[in-house]
Simulated assay, not measured.
Amino acid sequence: MSTSPGVTPSPRLSVLDLVPVRSGQTTAHAVAASLDLARLADRLGFERYWFAEHHNMPAVAASTPPVMIAAAASVTQRIRVGSGGVMLPNHAPLVVAEQFAALEAIAPGRIDLGLGRAPGSDPVVTQLLRATGPTADVDRFPQHVTDILALMSPDGAQLRLTSGQVYDVRATPAAESTPTVWLLGSSDYSARLAAELGLPYVFANHFSGQGVDEILALYRDGFRPSEANPEPRTFLTLNAAVAETDDEARARALPQARMMARMRTGKPLTSLETVEDALAAPLDALAEQMVEDQLRRWAVGTPDASAAEIRRLAERHGVEEVMIVPVAASRTDEPLDKTPGRTQTLELLAAALRP
């Protein structure tokens, strides 16, 4: 990527989508808006588009990444689509391997399987997800990651039965290509495991900015080259709301910041507020401080200022890609099946960071 002398190179941009649901929206509206955003990211040249996995949250419709990935793959042409991530403790490894092998057959060379170790929900929903018994429990996370890698490989995996017979298992026979597997995390656990297995790693900076330098150093220093990944590969996530003015960007970011403050103070969760509702409803002092702390860590502002912040983040941490979580909320009079604030964020950032 060429740049003028003295100008920091622009990182590649990607998107992490939680499929937000605002007040008055149905899940159908939210999904339609996210698929429109995926089409836009594809046209604008973004690197990848990932869907999160969260459960039983009124403001989030991203509960089934494979379904959303299949839908996004069907309406895009070149962008990589994947999970950010599949929360492996909720799923049997064979099911995950089969789902993503099928996705790779649908969109060869464009599928990313991001795996996380957290459940992505509260303890009650976690038990419901495992109603038929434990699937990929947290303690067996390393083994289940390696199981998935084997199951999706052309050679597949082998099981030795109690009879001594060797049983071959493949996620998809005669696979021509396999998804790229990433480990996701916000602590040193997944960073160390990714390094040990020679896998790419993503630090979840959008909800935990603590210890990023140390964790990335652990990953890079401990990385063991693998056939698929001879060198460490990593990027960071970042919440962003971009508009033509600072005031508008802040107003658009406010509903998401308020929702995260409610989560962290144990308040009841609701669908995402509109900008007008967020501006009209005061918070207590603790929640207000949490909101302000979050907004300072996000890229919230005009295109040039937000682009500069993203460049600084990429340069400081030595990454060539930043995955944006577009958190710009909607106004009351905007269409329910569209997401103008998030659309504007992607458009303005793509223009401001264009090489």
Rank of each mutant, 00 (worst) to 15 (best):
residue 262 R to V: 02
residue 36 D to I: 02
residue 90 N to R: 15
residue 126 T to A: 04
residue 239 N to Y: 09
residue 283 L to Y: 04
residue 86 V to Q: 09
residue 211 G to I: 03
residue 109 G to T: 07
residue 290 M to K: 13
residue 214 E to D: 10
residue 116 G to E: 02
residue 85 G to W: 05
residue 162 T to E: 15
residue 135 T to Q: 06
residue 152 M to R: 01
residue 309 E to M: 13
residue 186 S to W: 01
residue 143 Q to I: 01
residue 287 A to H: 08
residue 282 P to S: 12
residue 289 Q to N: 07
residue 101 A to Q: 04
residue 352 A to R: 10
residue 118 A to H: 07
residue 346 L to Y: 08
residue 118 A to K: 03
residue 218 L to C: 05
residue 310 I to E: 13
residue 255 P to T: 06
residue 31 V to I: 15
residue 215 I to T: 13
residue 122 D to I: 07
residue 175 A to S: 14
residue 226 S to P: 09
residue 267 K to L: 15
residue 317 H to R: 10
residue 235 F to E: 06
residue 176 E to S: 15
residue 204 A to W: 01
residue 242 V to D: 11
residue 102 A to G: 02
residue 37 L to D: 07
residue 7 V to G: 04
residue 192 R to L: 00
residue 84 G to F: 12
residue 130 R to H: 00
residue 115 L to P: 02
residue 319 V to R: 05
residue 29 H to Q: 11
residue 131 A to H: 11
residue 289 Q to R: 15
residue 82 G to T: 05
residue 160 R to F: 00
residue 106 I to S: 09
residue 70 A to R: 05
residue 211 G to C: 07
residue 23 S to P: 00
residue 316 R to E: 14
residue 267 K to T: 11
residue 325 V to W: 00
residue 118 A to W: 04
residue 7 V to H: 10
residue 149 L to H: 07
residue 172 T to G: 11
residue 103 L to E: 07
residue 41 A to M: 02
residue 101 A to I: 08
residue 17 D to L: 03
residue 245 T to N: 01
residue 150 A to Y: 00
residue 50 W to Q: 05
residue 153 S to F: 08
residue 152 M to E: 07
residue 292 E to F: 04
residue 268 P to T: 01
residue 4 S to V: 09
residue 245 T to W: 03
residue 340 P to Y: 08
residue 200 P to L: 12
residue 82 G to N: 13
residue 203 F to K: 00
residue 23 S to H: 14
residue 271 S to Q: 15
residue 140 R to D: 04
residue 227 E to F: 03
residue 34 S to T: 06
residue 286 L to E: 15
residue 326 P to S: 11
residue 317 H to K: 11
residue 184 L to D: 00
residue 261 A to R: 12
residue 215 I to Q: 06
residue 23 S to L: 09
residue 77 Q to G: 06
residue 79 I to A: 11
residue 289 Q to Y: 02
residue 241 A to N: 12
residue 16 L to S: 11
residue 271 S to M: 04
residue 329 A to N: 05
residue 330 S to A: 15
residue 49 Y to D: 12
residue 142 P to M: 11
residue 201 Y to K: 00
residue 199 L to A: 06
residue 145 V to Y: 01
residue 232 P to H: 10
residue 255 P to K: 13
residue 269 L to V: 07
residue 30 A to Y: 11
residue 260 M to E: 13
residue 345 T to F: 12
residue 94 L to T: 13
residue 135 T to I: 02
residue 119 P to W: 00
residue 170 R to V: 10
